[in-house]
């Protein structure tokens, strides 16, 4: 393993291609942590944004006027503002208003840290789009199917869970796919509030070593790989869910 790392040091000396995150132990550790942070942040945000999408779309169909208005207000707020502005707003404006808690080093810090705010902000951002995506899918389920379900005595929630959502899911997967891919890429914005994800770490490394082109190219490939894996698994899922008349062939 050591010889493998040293080969990259040789590569730098010989060609000037400086991949410090391979041969420098400190940079390597940072890069691995950054990579894992990106994956973790993406997974948590993916999870919550889909939950928000499902719940939001259900609430949107609510017979109560104010519930519908509230959901629409949420969608307008998060869809019409840039995600970077939202991150800044949550972290620097809302975050500082929160009650402070004692930290283990004897100081006081606001209740939620940068990772928590990144999750909240990005999940709600992607969630707003997901609500609309889910709504489109739900509206694609034939009215007669829903009526048949209620004729069989299913409640609104039961119909949603067992009839509408499973059918809608097959319609929305391509659009959801798109949005989730976007979400993974949007996690890079978290570097603005110092969440040590991949872009943040790469930025630190290229500032320390002035190897910007190498880090940029590495970043591109890392994201192509990450998003590639996501798209591939979503496509597999899409195919496995296929039923006649719904979903891609």
């Amino acid at each position: 393993m050591e010889a493998f790392f040293e080969w990259f040091r040789w590569l730098y000396d010989e060609t000037g291609i400086n991949l410090t995150f391979v041969y420098d132990a400190y940079d390597r550790e940072r890069m691995i942590d950054g990579f894992l942070m990106t994956i973790w942040l993406s997974l948590v945000c993916l999870f919550f944004s889909v939950i928000i999408g499902i719940v939001g779309a259900w609430l949107q169909g609510s017979p109560l006027k104010w519930t519908r208005r509230l959901v629409n207000g949420y969608i307008q707020f998060f869809r019409n503002t840039p995600p970077l502005v939202q991150l800044y707003f949550f972290y620097f404006a809302v975050g500082n208003l929160l009650p402070k808690v004692a930290t283990d080093y004897g100081g006081e810090a606001p209740l939620l840290g940068n990772f928590a705010w990144a999750v909240i902000s990005l999940s709600f951002f992607a969630g707003a789009f997901n609500v609309e995506i889910f709504r489109a899918g739900i509206e694609a389920v034939p009215r007669s199917t829903v009526e048949a379900a209620s004729a069989l005595g299913l409640t609104r929630l039961q119909t949603y869970r067992h009839v509408t959502l499973p059918l809608a899911f097959r319609v929305i997967l391509p659009a959801l796919n798109n949005n989730l891919v976007n979400l993974v890429k949007t996690t890079t914005l978290a570097y603005a509030i110092a969440v040590p994800e991949m872009l943040y770490v790469a930025n630190q490394i290229w500032s320390d070593n002035v190897n910007v082109p190498e880090m940029m190219i590495f970043l591109l490939f890392a994201y192509i790989a990450l998003v590639g894996i996501l798209v591939w698994s979503m496509n597999r899922w899409e195919r496995s869910l296929k039923i006649p008349g719904f979903g891609t062939s």
């Binding site: 620097f92 975050g95 500082n96 402070k100 930290t103 080093y105 100081g107 006081e108 810090a109 606001p110 840290g113 940068n114 110092a194």
Partner: peptide, 10 residues
């Protein structure tokens, strides 16, 4: 400076 004042770092 904002983060320092808010106590996000020491």
């Amino acid at each position: 400076y904002n983060a320092l004042k808010a106590g996000r770092c020491v």
